[in-house]
Amino acid sequence: MTNQHYGQFCGLARAAEIVGQRWTLLILRDLSVGPRRYSELVTGLPGIPTNTLASRLKELEEEGLIARLAPTAGERAVVYVLTPRGEELRPALDALSRWGAGGMRTPREGEIVTTASITAALRVAAGDGVVPADWDTAYTVRVGDIEAHVLMHDGVITVGPGAAEAPDLVVIAGPEIRDLLAGELDADTAVASGAVQLEGDASLFARFADSLRVPYSPNVPAGA
């Protein structure tokens, strides 16, 4: 994969050799959200050089973390997916995402959200994904042109890219949704302040706000 070896018989060192290169974790994040064509990865990773993407995909395939699926009928492009070995990284990716989000209060200049980034963020916020069994609610979360869905059904939260098929509530949000997920804004204040806008049954927003949580780290400066 890489000529960078740490010279230690250590699981963390070996993992760093495989996933520690620039862009690798974000490629894995995008594939953890769902299968992706090469062109979809390029779109979802603005700024990545195409030669770097091609190299990283080849390296991850050689390591057995991803695989290429041959085009199906009507398709012309291969699709990249995580292998079972790659899926084993999902908890680590989510843990790193939660840790990083603990220090994120406002976007830095030029930072954007993508379908994979907002989906992964909501997946992390859902935590263990357990809600009361009698909740049966579909949410679409919209940030600019990006949409993801949050479904509460049979006591479980599931998160995925794209709008819900028949959302009970659409949550239209900007960067201030970060304060809501951190628990620094309650549902009523988030709506009253304009941090979020709602379309649909607004009474369902409280359970959304109560069920998804990524707190700020107490050790991060307020201006971070």
Rank of each mutant, 00 (worst) to 15 (best):
G7K: 07
D188A: 09
D30R: 15
L60E: 02
E63A: 15
A116W: 15
A126S: 14
T106A: 14
T137L: 14
I66Q: 04
G34M: 05
T119H: 01
E88M: 04
L180P: 03
V220A: 09
G129L: 08
G183Q: 10
S217P: 08
A67W: 03
I157H: 08
V156G: 03
I146N: 06
L28R: 09
L31K: 09
R207G: 08
I112M: 01
V150I: 02
V33E: 14
Y6E: 07
G86H: 02
V156P: 10
R178D: 00
A182V: 06
L185I: 00
D134L: 10
E59I: 02
A182E: 07
R14K: 11
A187F: 06
Q197P: 04
A126V: 06
G86K: 05
E111W: 09
R142C: 00
Q197M: 08
A209L: 11
A126R: 04
A163R: 10
G44N: 12
A54G: 14
G103R: 00
E17D: 00
L12E: 08
L41G: 07
R90A: 08
Y38C: 03
L180H: 08
A116V: 14
I172W: 05
I118N: 02
T137M: 10
R22S: 13
R98C: 12
G183W: 13
G11T: 07
A182I: 11
L181G: 01
P35C: 10
E17W: 02
V79C: 07
D188P: 00
T24G: 09
A133V: 15
A54T: 15
R36S: 12
D145E: 15
G100W: 03
A15Q: 11
A125C: 00
V131L: 05
D128V: 15
L122F: 05
A77T: 12
G160N: 07
A138L: 04
L25A: 13
V220P: 05
M1F: 09
A92R: 10
E62D: 15
R56Y: 02
Y216N: 06
V196L: 08
T24P: 05
S32K: 03
P221A: 10
A148K: 06
I48R: 05
